[in-house]
């Protein structure tokens, strides 16, 4: 019993300490934007890596999400004879839920994993210490530009993913299942509001920031050797993945409540 209690207490202390250290990390990163705005020669290559090189994978994800949604939703609605309402259901799901979440997850894997591995390697090869000896703050120099790139580019990539998802859903519904094109768009226009698009962008902004911060933090926490870097990369992806799913739930609740309050 005593042993169990000691272990629980120790875990609680570790959790609080880690949270405190993450909070300090977040503050330093955000403060870095003011203290030392990233230089062009640092941030441009990062944006190419994070943004441009992710377009393909994000488009592929978006297209298949749109198409599979159409397949599932059409089959369900067909049983009830309500196929004409497929448009808003598919498009709403893409724009405010699945688009941002799946784009963020794929980016957490591609971009977040790479950032954690890169920073972890820099830590174990003493490059981060070297930065400090040369008068650079590693968080400001390495994390702030990565955080800003994710914050800016994840929403843009999500919009790409949404756009191709909408096209994918349309192609399957109208061209493959022969739902009336007129009804498909007419119903979508009726039920899909700018609010839904805004919710999707707001979520992806949060996901972008979270991916940047969590994955860089995990990289900085890497233990010794190749094993340490590997573990940091896995931890980064898992932590980002869980944060995306959990925060998406709470953000959906929050935005739905806000919508009701604003329209009541």
């Amino acid at each position: 019993m005593n042993l169990w209690l000691t272990r629980l207490l120790r875990n609680a202390i570790t959790a609080v300490t880690s949270l405190g250290s993450f909070a300090r990390f977040v503050i330093s990163t955000v403060d870095g934007v003011r203290a030392e705005p990233p230089q062009r020669r640092v941030i441009v290559p990062l944006m190419v890596e994070i943004g441009l090189k992710s377009v393909g994978v994000v488009l592929a994800t978006g297209a298949f999400v749109g198409m599979v949604l159409a397949v599932q939703i059409y089959n369900q609605l067909h049983k009830m004879g309500a196929e004409s309402t497929a448009g808003p259901i598919i498009n709403l799901s893409i724009v405010s839920e699945l688009g941002p979440v799946l784009a963020a997850i794929i980016l957490a894997g591609r971009v977040g994993g790479a950032m954690a591995a890169e920073l972890g390697t820099m830590k174990v090869t003493e490059q981060i210490d070297a930065l400090r000896t040369l008068g650079a703050d590693p968080v400001t120099y390495l994390v702030t530009p990565r955080f800003l790139s994710c914050l800016l580019l994840v929403p843009i990539l999500t919009l790409y993913s949404d756009a191709i998802g909408v096209v994918g859903g349309y192609v399957m519904s109208v061209k493959f299942y022969a739902i009336s094109e007129h009804y498909y768009w007419e119903q979508t226009r009726r039920f899909l509001e700018m609010w839904d698009v805004f919710v999707g962008i707001a979520k992806s902004l949060f996901f972008g920031g979270a991916i940047g911060l969590i994955c860089c933090y995990k990289g900085f926490q890497a233990g010794q050797g190749a094993e340490g870097v590997g573990r940091a990369t896995t931890n980064a992806f898992v932590a980002a993945f869980i944060t995306i799913l959990v925060s998406n739930f709470f953000m959906s609740l929050f935005f739905n409540t806000l919508y009701r309050v604003l329209h009541s």
Partner: peptide, 24 residues
Amino acid sequence: DETDLATVRRRFGMVFQLAALFDS
């Protein structure tokens, strides 16, 4: 503190065990 140390460190140079050159 770390901010003031950055200025003091200008007076130091450090050579690391595995050189710690910036890969990128």
